[in-house]
Structures are given as C-alpha cells and as structure tokens.
Nucleic acid binder design. Structure first.
Length: 286
DNA sequence: TCTGCATATCCAG
DNA sequence: CTGGATATGCAGA
C-alpha cells in the first residue's frame, strides 16, 4: 500500500518527504532523554550525543521539523514553558474559533447514541510531524484523527469502539487533503474553513468545542474549561471528556494541563503531547 | 444503579 | 515538596 496520492499538489513535497519518520523518532528520543535528566537542563551537545547525532545534525533536524533551534526546543520542553503558556493565556471564551479556521458541522441528532449507524467513515494513514497519523473523513468533514503507535489496526480499533455501528473502509483519497492541510501551518487560512464534525455525547461535544477556542501558543486547564462551561466543579469530568477527543491535534487537547502545570495525560502518549507543544513553539507568532 | 476518570483543593508530614 | 482524603460530573456498563 502506498501512502502517496495523485491528489497531492505537484508543487508541494509529498508528506513522506516533508515529515520523515526519522525526524519524529529523534524528537521522541530527545524528549525521553530530557525526562531522564530529571530537571537539570542538559547542554545541546550533551543532548545531541544522547540521541546519536552530531550537534549540527540535530540543529538541522529540528530546524526542518519545527523551525526550532535546539536551544529553543530544549526550552520548550521544560515545565517552565508550560507555566509560561498558562500564565500568558487569557480566559477562554473571547478567542476566535481556532488557528486552523474550523467550520463545525453537526451530525444528525441521535447519531452518536445510535453508535454512529449510517455514517460512512473513510480512513487513511498519512505521515505527520508526530509520526504516522490516521484520519477519518465523512461527508460531514473530518471526524477522527489519531496516531499510530505499533499496529495500524490497533488505532482503527480505538475508533471502532467509539462508534461501533459506523461503517469503516479505507479511503486514502478522502483523507489525504485533510492530512496535508492539518499539519501544514501555511495552509491554515480562513478562506476555506476546515470542515469538522464531532460525534459524541452532548457534554463531550461541548468540551471539544471549548478546545477549539484555545489559541495557538496558548494553554488552559481542565478546571478553566469546566468553569467556561458553567460547571466549575466538573474539572474531572472535563478531563475524562478531553481524553476522549476524537479529532486530536485539530481540537487542541494537547494545550490542556493540570492547574499545577503538570502535563497530566494524553490519549496518544505524553511524549507526543510534549512533542506537539515543542513543535508549536516553533510556529511564527500570529 | 455503580465504577472509574487526562481534576482541584485541603491538610498533614 | 509529597501523599492521602474528599467533593465532584459524567459516560459506560
């Protein structure tokens, strides 16, 4: 099976070239190493050595991956970075929909309660800056985004469990345009909003919609989302709902932390959450 | 019904 | 700074 598709623009490099798997693998190794140093900030040279690269190689890799210098990457991986994000973030609610410019579609009433029956889900696997991603497209737009860790079938099973009555079939052609766009900041433009639909319980959908109002380079806490929903005691329920976010990355559940600044959790692995946070630190402000 | 959460807060060492 | 107890809303079974 090929991951490339004729629908890719000829002027853009194919995603496999844009986001080489080895880059993310090195990023993962780097984050693991930082975890082992336990608070002490390591030098760039030491970090490069730990992941088996010369310092200039690491520099080039991080520049290609996220436009980051190694120094900036290391800084963005510290607890202090999360604190700074939280401190710099305004209250939820006032912000615009999302940097990705989302058009939120509503599935038919009761579709979730009926297990997604009647919905045709086309899935596809695509390279991303955070390893291989699985995307799920329907006629309502993007409905699922997750990441492959191990077997592709395991990720699919994750989604089948959420919507057991939906029809699943592979459709790389349907998901490819979403994959290209979602992971390419240059394509986050308002003229052609990304169509997206949330399939979940009323409460979960409300939480996921709140995620869309967390802007790029900003962050929030579970308690703040609960307060925004008018249920200030529901922080824990919010945490559970955030953990069920079906459209990872696009609905930025990676920007939610504990009130203490702790990373807390991530459905697709805490390492990936850290990687996404670091990657976003490399985006141009705006 | 009851159980388990990607929480938050308080209180003791 | 760490750990236990407690209040809490919701989804899934």
């Amino acid at each position: 099976m090929t991951l490339r598709s004729a629908s890719y623009s000829p002027t853009l490099p194919a995603p496999a070239d844009r986001w080489p798997e080895e880059d993310y693998a090195t990023v993962v190794e780097t984050i693991r190493f930082l975890g082992e140093t336990g608070g002490r900030p390591p030098s760039v040279a030491e970090t490069a050595r730990a992941v088996g690269l010369a310092e200039p190689q690491l520099r080039v890799l991080l520049r290609r991956w996220a436009g980051l210098s190694p120094e900036a990457f290391l800084e963005a991986s510290t607890p202090g970075h999360i604190r700074a994000l939280l401190d710099a973030s305004p209250a939820l609610g006032a912000a615009r929909a999302s940097d990705l410019f989302i058009a939120c579609e509503a599935p038919p009433v009761g579709a979730f309660e009926r297990g997604g029956a009647g919905l045709a889900m086309g899935y596809g696997f695509h390279p991303s800056p955070f390893g291989e991603a699985v995307l799920i497209a329907t006629e309502l737009g993007l409905m699922g985004l997750g990441f492959v860790e191990g077997a592709r079938e395991a990720v699919l099973e994750d989604f089948r469990r959420r919507w057991p009555k939906a029809g699943f079939s592979q459709d790389q052609e349907a998901t490819a345009p979403f994959a290209l766009r979602v992971f390419d900041p240059a394509q986050w433009r308002p003229e052609r909003p990304l169509r997206l639909a949330f399939l979940g319980s009323a409460f979960d959908v409300a939480v996921w919609e709140a995620l869309l109002s967390i802007e790029m380079r900003r962050a929030t806490t579970y308690g703040a989302i609960a307060a925004q929903l008018g249920k200030p005691r529901a922080a824990r329920a919010v945490g559970a709902a955030v953990g069920r976010n079906p459209v990872s990355f696009v609905a930025p559940c990676h920007r939610v932390f504990g009130a203490s600044g702790a990373l807390t959790g991530y459905h697709w692995g805490l390492t990936r959450k850290q990687a996404i946070i670091a990657w976003e630190a490399g985006l141009p402000a705006g």
